[in-house]
Design a protein around this nucleic acid. Structure first.
Length: 590
RNA sequence: GCGCCCGUAGCUCAGCUGGAUAGAGCGCCAGACUUCUAAUCUGGAUGUCGUGGGUUCGACUCCCGCCGGGCGUACCA
């Protein structure tokens, strides 16, 4: 009996942990099943208008066809809705169910259930968000800077979006393997190494110098036949593992790492040196990629090159050049095979520019047909191109690129001006720290908050904006919560233990906002779109700011004070978690 | 030529698997700091959802055509 009781409690807790949308969906689905014996989507959404309730199920209208066919006469969606509602089991979560219009089923959540759900989230280390039922191994490929080149604003999207995706999947309980597929291999190193040797430049070359040397080497390569020969010979020596050339190459890679690793730390991007797995890593596997595809009959020789014909495309995928060299398609195929067979990835996500969409579609198709991704779902999470002010693609070579370092410096400078102006008495050191959090946060958020598919125009003002739907808005809401706790001498841990009673519409609205987190994260991990989390955090912060204006916390009645403190604490944790998942800092004061 | 992406308020953008009167921010107008941070809040104005058809009880959402912009399209990544 005791065991049964425990089992029951556990079951209940688990049920309570499921996000609202998922719970309601299962609930209405069961109602449809008992009404009509059909397993149909309940089509539950957040209410389109608060007037109607908190959530709504739109399944009834869509069921008219199936029901009419089953009963042999024309069915009325309104009656279908009524029948479904009559079959719904009583549920502590729901206070009121009503039917409106053609057959909308509207739900008003019970205030006491909402209170309990907030309390339960407050006392849960995972904020009430369930861990994935099946933990997957997920490879996330992102950032991928080019060695010997400085990172510029064009690298921001992959780095930031990929990192947010990796963090969210990890939070959902998956085993995430970050892969920084750096561009550390290729013919350009022949040029660069030859040039360095010619100019007798030692190992002390800085990244900015390397970039400069690269341009000079390229120029020389285009003009000087002897240098071309020498560069080609150097590439061959590099690929053959010549110690001297290899050492020069290693110095270049190391210097590049010294450049981008601090940038990752500055950007609060979770990539570490161990996540680095560049093009050179796959070099030894390239030959077998080609021979295996040939052996399988998937690849053929064409005009001296080895190609794979992909159904639906009029041009083939080239995997070996006429001269015998390999291409990035070959490397990507090797990477897929490695990630699937060695890393045992269930899911392999590529966060790159959308211009590579066709390339990945062809590579994925080839890998699948070759049987190299048997238990691996291959997904491209493309993002739009960054355009210049003239609305033309932001090209690297034209020299008008904005270096990432410069962008971040400018962001911190602008934030510092803002902090100096708005934050009162604060030590210089503290102001600096806040400026970093606010400035870098603003830059990252401006990139994360838009649907990744669209192209966008680079603009300093847009990147560094700090009003409205920006990171500082969320950070400010968070700082306001912390300020209340500080003023009241209440620790977060104590506030979290409070009993919640929702006595005003504003508090209720905040509570409903808080409980949407799990559904939002589930959507994000499905669609790989961090902007849904941004939209959510902005909405939640707005709810909190309204609450802040309308509901005094510290000066209210003891029970109300306790409840409001608990709501504050839940908000602080939710915003902090959301910003953490986006890789954005959340200072306690600003 | 073929393929993919985009077109929503003056500007920048949301709009979840088709659902109720299409929403924010910025900007504009009018208010709110003797009370927990005004980087905030409250209220107001603004739309042929590029366009023409089709499917549907219902289309910003799905299908087809067209217009406009972008990208990709055999040895760069």
């Amino acid at each position: 009996m005791f065991a049964d009781g425990v089992f029951f409690i556990n079951l209940n807790l688990e049920k309570m942990m499921l996000p609202v949308l998922q719970q309601l969906d299962a609930y209405v689905r069961a109602g449809i099943k008992s009404a009509y014996g059909i397993d149909a989507d309940a089509v539950v959404t957040v209410a389109t208008n608060e007037r109607f309730g908190d959530y709504q199920a739109n399944a009834a209208m869509g069921l008219t066809g199936a029901v009419s066919a089953a009963q042999g006469s024309k069915a009325n969606p309104r009656q279908i809705a009524e029948k479904i509602v009559s079959m719904l089991e009583p549920n502590e979560m729901i206070e009121q169910v009503s039917i409106a219009g053609p057959g909308f089923i509207n739900f008003k959540l019970s205030s006491s259930w909402l209170s309990q759900a907030i309390e339960s989230a407050d006392n849960d280390a995972h904020l009430g968000v369930p861990v994935a039922a099946e933990s997957q191994t997920v490879v996330v490929d992102y950032s991928s800077p080019n060695v010997a080149k400085q990172m510029h604003v064009g690298h921001l999207r992959s780095t930031i979006i990929g990192d947010a995706i990796a963090r969210v999947l990890e939070f959902e309980g998956h085993h995430v393997i970050r892969q920084n597929h750096i561009g550390d291999w290729g013919t350009q190193f022949g040029m660069l190494i030859s040039w360095l040797r010619r100019s007798s430049i030692g190992s002390e070359a800085h990244i900015a110098d390397l970039e400069h040397f690269y341009r000079e080497a390229k120029k020389c390569f285009d003009e000087d036949k002897d240098f071309q020969e020498e560069s080609r010979a150097t590439v061959v020596r590099l690929q053959a593992g010549d110690p001297e050339v290899l050492a020069a190459w290693r110095r270049i890679v190391a210097e590049s790492r010294r450049h981008y690793q601090p940038l990752y730390e500055r950007l609060n991007v979770s990539l570490r040196p161990e996540d680095e797995c560049g093009e050179s890593f796959y070099n030894p596997m390239l030959e077998s990629v080609v021979t295996d595809l040939l052996a399988q009959g998937l690849a053929t020789e064409s005009e001296g090159a080895i190609v794979v014909n992909v159904p639906g495309y009029d041009t083939p995928l080239i995997i070996r050049k006429t001269g015998g060299g390999y291409l990035y398609a070959t490397t990507d195929l090797a990477a897929i095979r490695y990630r699937s067979e060695q890393l045992h990835a269930n899911r392999c996500i590529y966060c790159t520019d959308s211009r590579q969409a066709q390339h990945f579609a062809m590579v994925f198709d080839t890998a699948r047909r070759a049987g190299w991704a048997k238990d691996t779902r291959l997904e491209h999470a493309p993002f739009g191109t960054m355009l210049g002010e003239d609305r033309k693609p932001f090209k690297t070579r034209s020299g008008e690129t904005v270096k990432l370092t410069d962008l971040l410096d400018e962001a911190e400078t602008r934030a510092y001006e803002m902090v100096s102006q708005k934050s009162g008495d604060m030590t210089e050191e503290h102001k600096r720290a806040i400026s970093v959090a606010v400035g870098i946060g603003a830059v990252k958020y401006s990139d994360l908050c838009m649907d990744r598919l669209g192209d966008y125009v680079f603009s300093w003002d847009k990147m560094l904006s700090m009003d409205g739907n920006t990171a500082p808005y969320m950070q400010y809401a968070h700082a306001r919560v912390c300020s209340i706790l500080r003023k009241g001498g209440v620790s977060l841990a104590d506030a979290l233990r409070g009993r919640v009673v929702l006595s005003t519409p504003t508090e209720r609205s905040l509570a409903i906002g808080l409980l949407r987190l799990g559904d939002v994260l589930a959507l994000l991990s499905r669609e790989l779109k961090p902007h849904v989390l941004c939209t959510y955090l902005f909405d939640l912060s707005q709810r909190y700011n309204s609450f802040y204006e309308q509901c005094p916390v510290l000066n209210s009645e003891p029970s109300q004070r306790e409840s409001r403190l608990a709501l504050c604490a839940a908000t602080a944790r939710t915003i902090a978690l959301g910003l953490d998942l986006l890789g954005i800092a959340h200072p306690e004061q600003m």
